[in-house]
């Protein structure tokens, strides 16, 4: 019995050994190496010199770091509001038998099929000031005064890029909520209607609370996606004009690969990683709490 028990205790490790080794070598190893690099002045080709916390000291004095951080925050705030509300509204609207519901759903999640790079290219062209669709339309309907250099105005550029992110995100959130609604017992809704609840009250007091787990996930995913934002900025502006659309991931990339400050780039990633970690903790804490049946 004891031998058998010991064997069964070994079982999970047998399942884990191969994936874990690969993961440790290719992801966790380089990750620790990155932590180490953040304490050096590595330029990518020379031998790294240990310089202690100098990169971090420099980072906290770097105005671009704060611009990027602020932009990531804008991104987070937009992502946890607009797509969530719009996605939920769409899910509510489409979660019934209306003509062409399937086509509607497909239209909204179709942007997800495109890679972010392709999205960036398509929208970059939409935003083009002289011939792009948006300004051309504004001029055609007599609103030429509203035409802007969407990606060249330092006050607009970040929002213009975030709008593209939202365009892609709404369908994703919609699908998540649609799935969540599948789990809502129609009987409950009927019951509340019998009690004389209006549509809004039913939603507010019955459906929305039932969707809380979905909302939590949506919010966490949105925050993490916002922190990892990279491709759209990289394709559309490379952080310009003069860093006004820089986000942390791009800031890191430019320092590491354009300016060849690998050590500094590593320090930026570590900070970004630590910020993400806060949200992972919150999320995991929630998930594991609901899994108490262990």
């Amino acid at each position: 019995m004891t031998r058998e028990k010991r064997l069964s205790q070994l079982t999970p490790y047998l399942f884990l050994i191969l994936p874990l080794i690969i993961y440790l070598i290719w992801v966790i190893g380089p990750m620790f190496y990155t932590f180490y690099l953040s304490l050096t002045n590595w330029d990518g080709v020379s031998t790294p010199d240990f310089i202690g916390l100098r990169n971090y000291q420099r980072l906290f004095k770097d105005p671009v770091f704060y611009i990027s951080l602020k932009n990531n925050l804008k991104w987070i705030l937009s992502f946890i509001t607009i797509p969530v509300v719009a996605g939920l509204a769409l899910a509510m609207a489409l979660n019934r038998s209306i003509p062409g519901a399937k086509a509607f759903k497909a239209s909204f999640y179709s942007p997800l099929v495109l890679s972010l790079v392709v999205c960036g290219l398509i929208w970059g062209w939409m935003y083009q000031p002289a011939n792009g669709l948006i300004n051309a339309t504004l001029r055609a309907v007599g609103l030429g005064a509203l035409a802007r250099g969407w990606l060249s105005d330092k006050n607009l550029v970040m929002w213009a890029i975030i709008a593209v992110g939202i365009w892609r995100q709404v369908g994703y959130v919609m699908v998540l909520y649609l799935a969540g609604l599948q789990g809502v017992d129609p009987g409950l809704i009927d019951a509340s209607k019998v009690d004389g609840c209006s549509g809004w009250l039913t939603f507010r007091h019955v459906i929305f609370p039932l969707l809380t787990p979905v909302t939590v996930i949506v919010v966490v995913i949105s925050i993490i996606d916002s922190l990892r934002a990279f491709d759209l900025v990289s394709v559309m502006t490379r952080g310009g004009p003069y860093n006004s659309s820089s986000v942390l991931a791009n800031f890191m990339y430019i320092q590491a690969f354009n300016n060849y400050k690998m050590g500094y780039g590593a320090a930026i990633s570590v900070v970004l990683f630590l910020i993400s970690l806060v949200f992972i903790f919150i999320y995991l804490w929630r998930v594991l709490q609901t899994e108490m049946e262990y």
């Binding site: 990339y253 590491a256 690969f257 990633s269 990683f273």
Partner: peptide, 9 residues
């Protein structure tokens, strides 16, 4: 969750 670009080198 690590910004994977930094793992490149």
């Amino acid at each position: 969750l690590l910004p994977f670009q930094v793992l490149m080198l």
